[in-house]
């Protein structure tokens, strides 16, 4: 591996940077005993699930960042003359060093929070804890694919997509109920960020939903993840069709 040193430095850097995120949450909570009724370890659970998922997503589909450049300089044409799916090629066929630090650091926050929580563990709760990082990664990944697909129409730099990817990471690190209004509803349910960490955490903690949705809502998480995957695939395909119509 040619870039061993830079990989190590990047990993440490990413871990430190994301650790600062959590310090900030901890600092806020140093002044407030609870955040909308959530204790620090409870927020840690939320943050941990979202962080691990964000890290996994970044490792798996982070290459989507390359799409705007590939469209502008025409290398996306090369993707289209190969006998493999275009999304797979964009994701897998360039090699970038991806951050492992975020997963490690968020995993640590998650582990520490779990030891300090008094959860009456049941089978379904353990299952939810195991499944949540996977479904959360699928939701994040789908949102990233959908967000970046706009470059098929706009041929821009994809900066707008960043507000969805990093914005999603921010939003899912806090209890959704502290936000308010139509923007929250849009982000939580239309772009179903509430299913990344909020509903799985509610279920594990055995909390009622302050937003008043039925008790089975957290169990919809896998369905929401699969639906998002389908929508993302559809939008990507539509985008590629549009590109093949205009070639711009």
């Amino acid at each position: 591996m040619t870039y061993r040193t830079s990989t190590v430095l990047l990993t440490i850097g990413a871990a430190l940077a994301t650790f600062m995120d959590f310090l900030m949450i901890a600092a806020i909570m140093g002044h407030l005993p609870t955040l909308d009724g959530w204790s620090l370890p409870e927020v840690g659970l939320l943050y941990g699930i979202a962080g691990v998922a964000f890290g996994i997503t970044d490792m798996c589909v982070g290459n989507l960042d390359l799409l705007p450049r590939q469209i502008r300089d025409g290398t996306f044409d090369v993707v289209l003359v190969r006998p493999v799916g275009s999304l797979f090629q964009v994701l897998a066929m360039e090699f970038g060093v991806r951050r492992v630090g975020k997963v490690l650091q968020s995993g640590a926050v998650l582990a520490i929070s779990l030891t300090r929580l008094h959860v009456a563990w049941t089978g379904p709760k353990v299952a939810m804890l195991a499944v949540a990082p996977v479904t959360a990664s699928l939701i994040f990944g789908s949102v990233w694919v959908i967000a970046i697909s706009q470059v098929f129409w706009t041929v821009d730099t994809g900066e707008v997509a960043n507000s969805f990817t990093y914005g999603g990471s921010f939003l899912t690190s806090y209890p959704i109920s502290i936000f308010s209004g139509w923007l929250r509803d849009l982000l939580a349910f239309v772009i179903p960020m509430a299913f990344v960490s909020y509903y799985p955490a509610l279920f594990i903690l055995g909390r009622p939903d302050p937003l008043g949705l039925p008790a089975f809502t957290p169990l919809l998480t896998p369905l929401v993840a699969l639906a998002m995957l389908g929508v993302a695939g559809l939008i990507w395909r539509t985008g590629v069709r549009h590109y093949r119509g205009t070639g711009s």
């Binding site: 300089d73 025409g74 289209l80």
Partner: peptide, 26 residues
Amino acid sequence: PARQRVALARRIGVVFGQRRQLWWDL
């Protein structure tokens, strides 16, 4: 070509003078 792009891709070779298909770092 438009409707059977992937099947066609196996049977044709394409060289673009100004677009690289080799992997830069490999």
